[in-house]
Simulated scan of single mutants.
Amino acid sequence: MEGLLNGIVLSVVYGILGMVLLIGGYIIFDVILKSIDFNEELKNKNVAVAIVIAGFMIAIGIIIASVVS
Rank of each mutant, 00 (worst) to 15 (best):
I16E: 06
M19Q: 08
L22K: 06
G18P: 00
V20G: 00
D30T: 14
L17K: 00
G18I: 07
I27Q: 02
N39F: 13
S35P: 02
D30I: 02
L17N: 02
L21C: 12
I16F: 07
I36C: 02
V13C: 03
N39W: 07
V20C: 10
D37W: 04
L33D: 06
S35Y: 01
N44P: 04
N39C: 05
F29I: 00
G15S: 13
V31W: 11
V12G: 11
L10H: 06
I16H: 09
G25C: 04
I16A: 13
D30L: 05
V12Y: 01
N39I: 07
F38M: 00
L22H: 00
I36P: 01
V31P: 03
I23F: 11
L33Y: 15
K45S: 09
N39M: 09
I27T: 08
N39Q: 10
K45V: 03
I36E: 04
N44C: 11
F29Y: 12
E40L: 15
S11K: 00
F29W: 05
L33F: 14
G25E: 01
N39Y: 12
G15E: 13
L10F: 13
N39T: 15
G24I: 13
N44I: 00
K43E: 15
K34V: 02
V20N: 03
D37R: 13
L10N: 15
I27R: 03
S35V: 10
I28Q: 02
K43M: 12
F29G: 03
I32H: 02
L21M: 14
V13L: 12
N39S: 08
M19I: 05
V20D: 05
G18F: 00
I16S: 08
L22A: 06
I16C: 04
I28T: 09
F38Y: 14
V20R: 09
D30Q: 09
L10G: 02
I23T: 01
L33R: 11
V12T: 12
G25N: 04
L42H: 04
I16Q: 10
D30F: 13
S35Q: 10
V13Q: 08
L17R: 10
G18M: 08
Y26H: 13
I28H: 05
E40H: 09
L10M: 08
F38K: 01
I23V: 08
N39A: 13
N39L: 09
Y26Q: 11
S11P: 01
I16K: 08
V12R: 05
L21S: 03
E40T: 15
G18E: 11
L10W: 14
V31I: 12
D37P: 01
F29T: 01
E41Q: 14
S11F: 13
L42G: 06
D30C: 06
I27F: 14
V13F: 03
N44L: 08
K45N: 15
L42A: 10
L21V: 12
D30P: 02
K43P: 06
E40R: 12
L42Q: 06
K43V: 13
V31S: 05
S11Q: 11
S35A: 05
E41V: 01
I27P: 03
L42T: 09
K34R: 10
I16Y: 01
L10R: 14
I27A: 11
G24P: 09
E40N: 10
S35I: 04
I23Q: 03
I27C: 00
L33N: 15
L33S: 15
V20A: 11
G18A: 06
D37K: 09
